[in-house]
Design a protein around this nucleic acid. Structure first.
Length: 226
DNA sequence: AAACAAGGCAACCGCCACCGG
DNA sequence: TCCGGTGGCGGTTGCCTTGTT
């Protein structure tokens, strides 16, 4: 277990004095609290979070304990970057389910609804802003389907392309792609309006691998569609 | 090196549905 | 049927980190 994540306080120095005068603690969890919760759930199981909090000696609400367990302490929680496959799945599921984060999370083992929600609000909405359209608009939805998802699928395919001798076996990315519908087409290449490229495209290509899936050509094409 | 801005994410809040007494 | 407790969910906030000027 890693306790050097952001938000973990030194248990010897409580964040503020208010905690001493009120019954319930709030804010970042300490190492000791994590251990208490972890040990208690390991011994007694999940559920009945309010009584669990009291029995475990935690000065936290049941809700807080539940959230901490589900989003951080659960042994099967996956941490780290969202993979290309996961990004593609999130986009596809969101187009079908909307902001049903918990439902989307069920299709991504080890990922929490909170993590997916944060991914959407930071990465995806950022792209929407850069495209100057509303993330909930039909325009953006079309754009995601027409450009972002095909680009992702293409990159996944390239990344996972097996040696020729193994091509008959089905890769994970292929299994993900088979869940997606309908078959997606890449947009045709187009010429760039100068202002748009300098404004929207600036820095876009500098992102690390896996961060952005749109090339300048994609963005130009999109701008023409809007 | 310092100040500021933006990004990322953990945690909280409020609402709602469900369940048992 | 009503009511309180509980858990689940989506939206929001606030703080820390990282990047930029």
């Amino acid at each position: 277990m890693e306790f050097h994540e952001r938000g973990i306080c030194d248990s010897a120095t409580p964040p503020n004095d208010q905690e001493e005068t009120t019954d319930l603690r709030r804010g970042p969890w300490t190492r000791d609290e994590d251990l208490l919760l972890l040990n208690y759930v390991s011994a007694h199981g999940e559920g009945r979070w309010n009584s669990l909090a009291r029995s475990a000696g935690l000065r936290r609400t049941g809700k807080s304990c539940r959230l901490r367990w589900l989003n951080y302490l659960r042994p099967d929680v996956r941490r780290g970057n969202i993979t290309l496959e996961e990004q593609l799945l999130i986009l596809e599921l969101h187009s079908r389910l909307g902001n049903r984060w918990s439902k989307i999370a069920r299709h991504l083992p080890g990922r929490t609804d909170n993590e997916i929600k944060n991914y959407w609000r930071t990465r995806v909405q950022k792209h929407a802003r850069q495209m100057r359209c509303d993330v909930d608009s039909k325009q953006f939805e079309d754009m995601v389907r027409a450009v972002w998802m095909p680009r992702l699928a293409e990159r996944i395919h390239e990344q996972k392309k097996p040696p020729r001798s193994l091509e008959s076996s089905c890769s994970y990315s292929e299994s993900v792609e088979t869940q997606l519908s309908p078959p997606l087409q890449l947009p045709p290449p187009a010429t760039a309006p100068e202002s748009f490229v300098s404004d929207v495209g600036g820095g876009w290509m500098e992102l690390e691998q896996g961060e952005s899936m749109w090339s300048v050509e994609d963005i130009i094409w999109l701008q023409q569609q809007l």
